[in-house]
Design a binder for these strands. Structure first.
Lengths: 341, 341
DNA sequence: TTACGCCGTGTGAGCGTTCACAAATAAAAG
DNA sequence: CTTTTATTTGTGAACGCTCACACGGCGTAA
């Protein structure tokens, strides 16, 4: 269990070779699963590796192969539920495919920050980059210019953008939410959106409008929140100042919905008797809200898997055409929505 | 903005040296801020570096220095609020100190899994390891045997353990919660604990008992939840079957508190009129619960900073004695608790 | 038999750095 | 003006590995 030697005496390929009575190249072949090794020597080498507790030196390997088995994930807004879920699932997916993950977090969504993150690591020979880019403020074509040929997959870029990426169709999700309220008979529907520099917030906002207009209904008041519960609370208060006769409310995420429910209740409105409310994300807590929240679930698990899969494809075949893989959310109906009476 | 050359032609130290008319060693000195280089040549070299858009190759550097500027974070239970916050703040703290972060996640808290995570990366020459180890099931003394001399800091190990680590004093937090209820006149206090294989859950549970006993009060019923809201909901239902006359309830975290509040309300109990409830963590949503939740705040920001700081200390002076740095939580009083009438 | 091919193994070189020196230059002292 | 000392620069080697190739040995076909 304890290391056989002091750390000063590192075990190398040559030590294993001497111990097994073969050349260092043969040991290298065994390590890399080269088929041109006889069964008997392979066993002998494997025994020597085990006996000496040998670990290949990744730095040396990377130096010559120019590959690192490392994926970098550049993330933004990890304190929010969505991005944090993405990171978790990307890690899992990467590990399943034999890659390790280098974590970089952006404090600000600017080209300078992104370029700093990439620069820092281009010297590390990362094999690929996943960029969680949910916010406006950067010309994404420019980012591709910065990566020095390192394959890149972006998550949460606008739908229809021509950069390689994986996205959840937020338009579709928002449609589901709004149509659900329409089907329950609601005709006066307001919105609390996320910050409108987030692509997801924009998409949900626009589809809320277009879904209503497509059936000839004028959208109600829309106010902006900041994704947090308290932000949703304050946004709802502002909304109630402008309008207090709506019966349906779509909210940009579940946390804000929680805050909004609180504000509505303080105002004397009951949910769902007076107002039906739909959230977004389906966070694990949503089912225990008062009342349990109807919401649009996003499959972050699939998002993580898809983006790693796509990135690995891109690493293996760099000339693959850029595409945008699209996932679809689905509606979870609970007790915060009800047919209008 | 675009890279000057195709990626096939990597710029090396020698290219810069030729371009600047000096030797490669001089360029190396400039990069490593060696003082023994004249001002004029330094400027010349820096210009050449910029002109060629040179990036040092970390693999080559690591190969000879045996250092990588990489910290590995082995985490467990990232889907929970606490661990996920820790990762975020550790990343920030590491970046501020010039380290990059390698992310590994454990699906299971076993020596085999941990050893796999460490083995995978010992070949990567990571400079230090941070282990988020909130769960029982491993002999932590054994882990130190596995690290091959790589400095290690553990987070969330039991208070008083002799392994190098940073912890939040959960005993203290639990005391705060229970004493708060006592000071409001509550004498019949029950508990919903976290899973009792988590150190934090055990500590909170034990201190709930000891705090009550120290003032001569017999603890009420305790049931176990799973940290999730729905788990808290179910735990509360089980609790109500066993006992429905308590007036105070301490809950292992805020998510479970949310579920518990829902179950209590379904049972016909009002909060805080009938039951006062205290949570743990102070998640951002807690302030918007119905009613806003009294809870014990943990400073994950400080936890991240401290652990990275400690680890970097350990890297620079490996012979530093092992210690356990302790942080203290504090109570946030909101409207879910009230003096008994 | 001789030639060709394939399989298993070994040899030389190089990946891009830093380290420990040695050399050259400049500055200070005699 | 020479000698000593400090400062700046250059040279060889090594880090631990993989790649391209060369080399024997054996089976198969001409």
């Amino acid at each position: 269990m304890t290391p056989p030697e002091n750390q000063s005496k590192r075990v190398t390929l040559h030590d294993v070779a001497d111990s097994a009575g073969v050349s260092y190249q043969t040991v290298s072949r065994v390590i890399n699963d080269d088929p041109h090794v006889s069964k008997s020597t392979r066993i002998r080498v494997l025994q020597a590796i085990k006996a000496l507790d040998y670990r290949p030196n990744h730095a040396a390997r990377s130096l010559v192969t120019r590959r690192s088995n490392l994926l970098e994930i550049i993330s933004f807004g990890v304190s929010h539920y969505g991005p944090s879920q993405m990171v978790t699932h990307i890690e899992r997916a990467a590990r399943e495919r034999g890659y390790h993950l280098l974590l970089s977090h952006l404090s600000e969504m600017s080209l300078i920050e992104i370029s700093r993150a990439i620069d820092n690591l281009s010297g590390r020979l990362v094999d690929g980059i996943i960029l969680i880019a949910p916010v406006m403020g950067v010309d994404y074509a420019e980012i591709i210019g910065i990566t020095r040929g390192i394959p890149l997959v972006m998550i949460d870029t606008p739908l229809g953008s021509n950069a390689p990426g994986v996205v959840i169709n937020q338009h579709h999700g928002s449609q589901l939410a709004t149509q659900h309220l329409l089907s329950l008979g609601h005709r006066h529907i307001c919105e609390i959106s996320g910050p409108l520099n987030w692509f997801g917030a924009i998409a949900r906002h626009e589809s809320w409008i277009s879904t209503l207009k497509s059936v000839g209904i004028e959208p109600g008041v829309s106010v902006q929140g900041d994704w947090t519960a308290i932000g949703g609370y304050e946004a709802a208060k502002r909304l109630l100042e402008a309008d207090h006769s709506f019966t349906g409310l779509v909210v940009g995420n579940d946390q804000m919905a929680l805050g909004a429910m609180r504000a509505l209740r303080e105002y004397g409105l009951r949910i769902p008797e007076d107002v039906s409310i739909v959230g977004f994300d389906d966070i694990p807590e949503a089912i225990c809200f008062e009342p349990p929240l109807t919401t649009v679930r996003q499959d972050f698990d699939a998002l993580g898997t898809q983006s790693v899969e796509y990135l690995v494809d891109l690493i293996q075949r760099p000339e693959l055409p850029a595409q945008q893989r699209v996932l679809h959310p689905n509606l979870i109906v609970r007790q915060s929505t009800r047919a209008i009476s």
